[in-house]
């Protein structure tokens, strides 16, 4: 076991939590991520290999799956992001590669992203100041990659109107956090 102490994307040793009114923004450092892109011509085999990992069919465009052990987001044609608990799946990329073998390219993405959960009954008022997503139709299981404060982010609806998960570029975690908390103060 190595002896290097990690820091969160916001530079802390523990997750940062911000609350405005009844909406809460929580930094989620314990999310392991890997991208899975089907190899050309092996798309069907890749999907078949993904199925037991996801306990579901690989999601179609704009959708996610939320079963253990790996949650998933559609990220592009024949391409998904898989999510797992960091504490148990820090080796997510190696683990997936061993299952998917030559059907997919697997790339560790854990620390390419910062993950925030935004929860509360009025998150819609916050989100509409941040991104172009049509929130009237944004339901549990939907996921959209869009721009927030000029940063390409994934926004995943984990509970309609109540909870979203936002993945943004890790190096800009501070800017993204500032944009979201500013919108919270403005909207709530």
């Amino acid at each position: 076991m190595h002896d290097l102490t990690p820091i969160t994307a916001l530079g802390g040793t523990s997750q940062r939590i911000d609350t405005v009114g009844d909406v809460c923004l929580t930094e989620m450092p314990d999310v392991a991520l890997a991208s899975v892109a089907a190899r050309r011509g092996k798309e069907a085999r890749c999907r078949a290999a993904l199925k037991p990992l996801l306990n579901a069919d690989a999601p179609p465009p704009g959708r996610t799956t939320a079963n253990a052990p790996f949650e998933s987001i559609w990220t592009g044609p024949d391409q998904w992001m898989l999510l797992a608990d960091f504490t148990t799946h820090e080796d997510i990329a190696a683990h997936l590669k061993s299952h998917l073998a030559d059907t997919a390219s697997v790339t560790e993405q854990t620390d390419a992203w910062v993950c925030f959960d935004l929860t509360g009954p009025r998150i819609t008022a916050v989100l509409e100041l941040l991104c172009t997503i049509d929130l009237t139709w944004f339901e549990t299981g939907d996921a959209i990659r869009t721009s927030i404060h000029h940063l390409g982010c994934f926004v995943i609806c984990t509970e309609t109107g109540q909870s979203v998960r936002i993945l943004g570029p890790r190096a800009s975690a501070g800017s993204l956090h500032h944009a979201i908390t500013t919108a919270m103060a403005s909207a709530l």
Binding site: A38, R40, E43, A44, P60, P61, P77, D78
Partner: peptide
């Protein structure tokens, strides 16, 4: 249209 057609399924 997609410049690069997707695989068998998307």
């Amino acid at each position: 249209a997609l410049a690069r057609p997707a695989g068998a399924q998307i």
